[in-house]
Amino acid sequence: MGESLLNESPGRRVPQAQRLRDLLEDAIVEGHYAPGDRLDPEALARQYECSRTPIREALAHLAASGMVKVAPKRGTFVARLSVTELVERFEVMAELEGMCGRLAARRMNAETLSALQRAQAACRQFMLEGDVNGYYYENGEFHRLIYEGSRNAFLAQEARRLHAMLKPYRRLQLHARQRLESSWCEHERIVAALIAGDADTAQRELKAHVLLQGERFNDLVASVRHLDQPQT
């Protein structure tokens, strides 16, 4: 179920609760836990050889992102999300990212832009090493800096919220052949547009970077086809 995430990528320290959350997200996305399945903290603690505290913290984050539902006195259950609902969320995410990029091209200060370039350099190193997990975490920082650079607190908050909902599916995409390389190249065009202050290009590149289309759409749908299968 992706236990390799518990092994940290060199150069980036990730809290245990976050790594556990990522493992659980992957297990749900990949169909190891089906919609409606109950997630028992004690059983999960035994499986991942840790205490129940980080498990409970991870489950709380999953509940906040909508991947699980908490039923009082009954437990925590995997939420139901259809492929159609997933695609709709990606469509909204693409628009939000585009808006962030457009505003960031006009408003991002030199300090945030420098941090973005450092994140992109780190992404390049992880890409060259073929380190999907390392790239994934640095990619999150890359996008967070663009949200911050928009200088619109409400927009940044909504972008972060939806990003948290979709991040396991975005991580799944990174495992597709050549996706690390293409993602990094897309980042390069985004950074260039932000440096140039080109709002139109920044918006267009960020929307294309996130939007599911063509082969990327087909690959993701094939990976999560179980979401639309009837439960027995």
Results as ranks from 00 to 15, higher is better:
11 G>I: 09
83 V>S: 15
99 M>A: 14
110 A>Y: 01
164 A>V: 05
207 K>H: 12
80 R>Y: 03
91 E>F: 03
223 S>G: 08
231 Q>L: 14
227 L>K: 02
56 R>F: 08
162 L>K: 10
150 S>T: 02
26 D>M: 04
192 A>H: 09
92 V>K: 09
13 R>V: 07
61 H>L: 11
138 E>A: 08
161 R>A: 13
90 F>L: 02
145 L>T: 04
206 L>I: 05
54 P>L: 09
110 A>I: 06
143 H>Y: 14
229 Q>G: 09
145 L>H: 07
217 F>H: 05
46 R>Y: 07
137 Y>K: 04
17 A>E: 11
54 P>Q: 06
124 R>K: 11
82 S>Q: 10
206 L>N: 00
24 L>I: 10
82 S>C: 08
127 M>S: 13
194 L>H: 13
97 E>C: 06
33 Y>F: 04
119 A>H: 01
149 G>Q: 11
208 A>I: 00
201 T>F: 06
123 C>A: 14
80 R>D: 02
209 H>S: 14
4 S>I: 13
194 L>D: 10
5 L>N: 04
69 K>P: 00
15 P>F: 06
153 A>T: 12
160 R>A: 12
123 C>G: 10
19 R>H: 04
137 Y>I: 08
104 A>Y: 07
43 A>S: 12
54 P>S: 09
92 V>G: 02
193 A>R: 15
201 T>E: 09
78 V>E: 03
213 Q>G: 01
60 A>W: 08
160 R>G: 06
225 R>W: 08
37 D>W: 07
209 H>K: 05
166 L>C: 06
121 A>S: 14
22 D>N: 15
124 R>H: 13
